[in-house]
Design a protein around this nucleic acid. Structure first.
Lengths: 228, 228
DNA sequence: GCCGCTCGCTACGCTTTCGTCACAAGCTCT
DNA sequence: AGAGCTTGTGACGAAAGCGTAGCGAGCGGC
């Protein structure tokens, strides 16, 4: 549920500075030391935002940004460019390459965290802790509250995370294994049928609030959340 | 807890005059010499109020004000415009740009401080040292006292700071780690479970004053203060 | 129409998490 | 220096939430 941020930066000191501050701000951090490593990391596990250094050994940050903008899967991936240069032409070039924001070194950690939040708020509101509203069913990650028509919906922690995932990924079928990965976290050993039980509990809570048939069963595959 | 004020002013003499008087009035002061520097300073550490000069080298104060009003993060940030001009059209333009108040040079320091307090009182009451009232539970930052229906609520210093934080950030869930950061201060090494104990003490004090269930437990995450 | 597979549902035991208490150390004020 | 209050911490019992097994029903294929 916490946003994952990929840092692509070759200088260990700056990489660490960024990582410490972002972690402290509640983000999950993945690091890469080159554009190529960053590219791999993105393919391995799609992050929610990328902080990309301008100058990198080998392939440059701008080149990677352009590449990411061409691939359909990463077209929407928010990018913040990091650079030591202060020339105006670079800024233009960076934004043309598809960067969402632009930070010049030296920067204050607070400023960077603020910019990360701002970009996430613009590009992926729910990751910035803003509430998700699907047809009167409102889930607020900040307050951990779910309401249906003003009425509070009572949910356990697992049901809350399950609903959060569904509401941020509606209209798409997920297998039990996928849901276990996404909602329970990777590398857990839990029976797949356990998902059924939590689906049942979630359905019961939603129906008690007047939301029938929001979670659909796709026989032989898994479940899907109705977004409309 | 003391409000932070950002001064964006290019003339050192006026900048200093403002800073001295505001500090004397108990405010924390941050200075910037241009609109661009001011913009960075705002992103680096969101101040509680901005004093913005009309005429600035480079980007003007009005332009910055408009920009601040467009960003969601700074939309609510109180702004006081400062100008040497006395033309009525400027005032209109300034207020249209989103300024909360308008002070013309030359000004008396006392007047400026008074206006700062007035704007804070209107936009963020608790920062002006005014009491926060949530459903009959009244907390006064100035006198450090809490009352419920006229009756004084007895609290230790830590419980007071905890309640203050909760009342100024109601309806939002905070983890124990976040509460330690916000209430105890950064970089302290204290067991997370200690938060539980202070929550318990706070609850006991509130319940003795007739406020049941104000602090809610969010299992697996942390605590939340009910604001309604 | 029968058989097998898949899913819904209930009940139960266990793990995790939380609330509470008691105590000792620290701080402040006199 | 001493008294009194405040605070941090460990321990323990309670409760909530969770995972799993088992059974029955429904759907689909042959």
């Amino acid at each position: 549920m916490n946003p994952t941020i990929l840092i692509v930066e070759d200088e260990p000191a700056i990489q660490e500075l960024l990582a410490v501050n972002l972690k402290h701000a509640g983000f999950l951090v993945v690091k890469a030391g080159s554009a190529e490593a960053g590219d791999s990391a993105i393919r391995a596990a799609l992050p929610d935002l990328v902080i990309l250094d301008w100058m990198l050994p080998g392939q440059s940050g701008v080149a990677l940004a352009k590449k990411l903008r061409q691939d359909e899967r990463t077209r929407e991936l928010p990018i913040i460019m990091l650079t030591a240069r202060v020339h105006e032409e670079d800024k233009v070039q960076g934004l043309e390459a598809g960067a969402d924001d632009y930070v010049t070194k030296p920067f204050s950690p607070k400023e960077l965290v603020a910019r990360v939040r701002a970009v996430l708020r613009r590009r992926a509101p729910h990751l910035a802790g803003e509430s998700v509203d699907i047809q009167g069913l409102v889930l607020n990650p900040g307050t951990h509250r779910v309401t249906a028509g003003g009425q509070t919906v009572e949910l356990g922690p697992t049901e809350f995370r399950l609903l959060f995932f569904f509401m941020t990924h509606p209209e798409r079928v997920y297998t039990r294994a996928q849901l276990l990965d996404e909602v329970w976290g990777d590398h857990v050993f839990i029976e797949e049928r356990t998902v059924d039980v939590h689906i049942r509990r979630l359905r019961a809570a939603l129906e008690a609030s007047g939301h029938q048939d929001r979670v659909e069963t796709v026989r032989g595959t898994g479940y899907r959340f109705r977004g409309h």
